[in-house]
Computed example of a mutant assay.
Amino acid sequence: ITGVFPETNNYRLLNNDNVVFNDVEYNLINDNERNNIGGLAELDALNQIIWNIENITDYLCKNPQITNVYFTRRPTGIWLQKWNELINSKCSKKIEYGAIYTPSAARLDGNPRMEMLIKHWLFNDNNNYLTLDHEWLIRNGVNPNNF
């Protein structure tokens, strides 16, 4: 997402990641409506989200050396739709796409949390997530076994 409300400034920001637009409250983080508060899918249905898919596709076309693209969440709902647009776009045929654990590590067990996050990115055995490309890391001076 590169922006919201592309043709208006007729909205009010609240201090909880929410906005009021046309007298309706929306959350700018949640995918869908929760507790009568709209989410990104509802704003998208109103054409109030500027997606970045075209810019990302152009970047991938200009950088054919990119072989992996990671999403820091499991794509569902409106995100799955946009994720699939990216996967099916030109220049995506030789790229592996998948999710890695979110950098916030909010629900990841262990302490220190950052150490657990790095280990998850490098060595997890959860089929819902990829691991970072070890060959690329090594070519760029990172030894995964140091973690």
Rank of each mutant, 00 (worst) to 15 (best):
T2Q: 08
G3H: 07
V4G: 05
F5L: 05
F5S: 08
P6T: 04
P6A: 08
N10Q: 12
N10R: 08
Y11A: 02
R12H: 09
L14A: 07
N15F: 10
N16F: 06
D17P: 00
D17C: 01
N18P: 02
N18E: 15
N18H: 15
V19Q: 02
F21I: 03
N22K: 15
D23E: 15
D23Y: 13
V24Q: 15
Y26L: 06
N27M: 09
I29A: 10
I29E: 14
N30Y: 12
E33P: 02
E33L: 02
R34P: 00
R34D: 08
G38H: 13
G38L: 13
G38S: 14
G39M: 07
A41F: 11
L43S: 11
L43T: 09
D44Y: 14
L46V: 00
N47T: 01
I49H: 06
W51E: 04
W51F: 13
W51C: 01
N52H: 07
E54G: 02
N55R: 06
I56Q: 01
T57F: 07
T57K: 12
T57A: 07
D58P: 04
L60I: 05
C61W: 04
K62P: 06
N63D: 03
N63T: 09
N63H: 13
P64I: 00
Q65L: 05
I66W: 05
T67K: 15
N68A: 00
N68K: 07
V69F: 12
Y70T: 03
Y70N: 05
Y70W: 10
F71S: 09
F71M: 11
F71L: 08
R73M: 14
R73P: 00
T76N: 08
T76W: 03
G77Y: 01
W79V: 04
W79I: 03
Q81A: 05
Q81Y: 13
K82G: 00
K82S: 00
W83M: 02
W83K: 02
N84V: 03
E85D: 14
I87G: 02
I87V: 15
N88Q: 14
S89F: 06
C91M: 05
C91I: 03
S92T: 11
K94C: 00
I95P: 10
I95K: 06
I95H: 10
E96L: 04
E96D: 05
E96I: 11
G98Q: 07
G98A: 07
A99T: 10
A99Q: 08
A99E: 06
I100G: 04
I100W: 06
I100T: 09
S104V: 04
A105N: 04
A105M: 06
R107S: 15
R107A: 08
L108A: 06
G110H: 08
G110E: 09
N111P: 01
N111V: 12
E115F: 10
M116Q: 13
M116C: 12
L117E: 08
I118S: 08
I118V: 15
I118H: 10
K119A: 13
H120N: 13
H120D: 12
H120T: 12
W121Q: 03
W121Y: 14
L122E: 10
L122S: 07
N126L: 03
N127D: 14
N127L: 10
N128M: 11
N128V: 01
Y129P: 11
Y129K: 05
L130K: 13
L130V: 03
T131S: 10
H134A: 10
E135M: 02
L137V: 10
I138F: 01
R139N: 15
N140F: 01
G141A: 01
P144K: 01
P144G: 00
N145Q: 13
N145E: 14
F147C: 14
